[in-house]
Computed example of a mutant assay.
Amino acid sequence: MKIHQILKNYNARGKENAMTTERLMELSGLTRREIVAQVKEERKHHFIGSTFQRNGGYYRPANFREIEDYNRQREQRIKLAALTMRPTRWLNKRRGQEGRM
């Protein structure tokens, strides 16, 4: 059964009703790694939010505000990742010019 459908069937709507990975594992018979992979695949067609609040878990949005908040958090993570890559890009560029570090 698809994760999105499980979340729908068990009314995991909104962050406050997020379903833990452990519960999804029980209901789906999938491992933690398989849950993550399945969610990644299903996100191509459905919004499946994730949260680290309380016990964390996955949820369907309760409203558009939750979708906006989720997007804002993801964008912040992307910006942070880009900042952490600056030094390695600089080193790679320098290495390419000099052939060493």
Rank of each mutant, 00 (worst) to 15 (best):
G56H: 13
A12T: 00
T20W: 00
M19H: 01
G96N: 10
I78A: 07
G96M: 13
R86V: 14
A81M: 12
Q73W: 05
Y59K: 00
H46V: 04
K2C: 05
I67M: 09
E22G: 12
R43D: 08
G57V: 00
T84Q: 13
M1W: 05
L83A: 13
I35T: 02
N63T: 03
K44N: 12
N9A: 14
M19Y: 06
Y59W: 04
R72K: 04
E75T: 07
K44M: 09
S28E: 10
E22L: 09
G56F: 06
N17C: 01
H46M: 08
N71M: 14
G49N: 02
R72I: 08
Y58V: 02
E34Q: 10
R100F: 09
K40C: 12
Q73N: 00
L7E: 02
T21I: 02
S28I: 01
F47T: 02
R100W: 15
G29R: 04
M1V: 01
R54K: 05
L91C: 14
Y58G: 01
L24A: 08
A81R: 05
H46Y: 15
L80K: 11
H46L: 07
L83N: 13
N92K: 11
A81E: 15
R65V: 02
R94F: 15
I67A: 02
K15C: 01
E22V: 08
I48H: 11
L30W: 05
E22M: 06
W90D: 08
A37Q: 07
R54D: 07
G56Y: 05
A62S: 09
V39P: 02
T88Q: 11
G14Y: 00
Q5H: 13
F47A: 03
T20M: 02
Q38E: 13
E34R: 08
K15Q: 11
V36G: 00
E26D: 11
K8N: 09
A18Q: 08
M1D: 07
A37M: 05
R95T: 11
A62V: 04
N11C: 05
P61K: 07
A37G: 04
K2S: 13
R72H: 08
S50P: 04
Q97M: 13
A82M: 10
Q53V: 03
G29P: 10
T31H: 05
R77N: 10
R23S: 12
T88D: 11
V39R: 01
N63D: 14
Q97K: 15
T21L: 03
I35D: 09
L7S: 02
V39S: 00
K93R: 14
R33L: 10
R95C: 11
A62I: 00
E41I: 04
R33Q: 13
H46R: 03
I3S: 10
K44G: 11
R95G: 12
I48Y: 08
M85G: 04
W90V: 06
R23H: 03
G56S: 10
I48S: 03
R33E: 12
E75G: 06
E75K: 13
F47H: 07
G99K: 04
E75Q: 10
L83R: 06
R33T: 04
K79S: 15
M25D: 14
R65I: 02
R32K: 05
M1E: 04
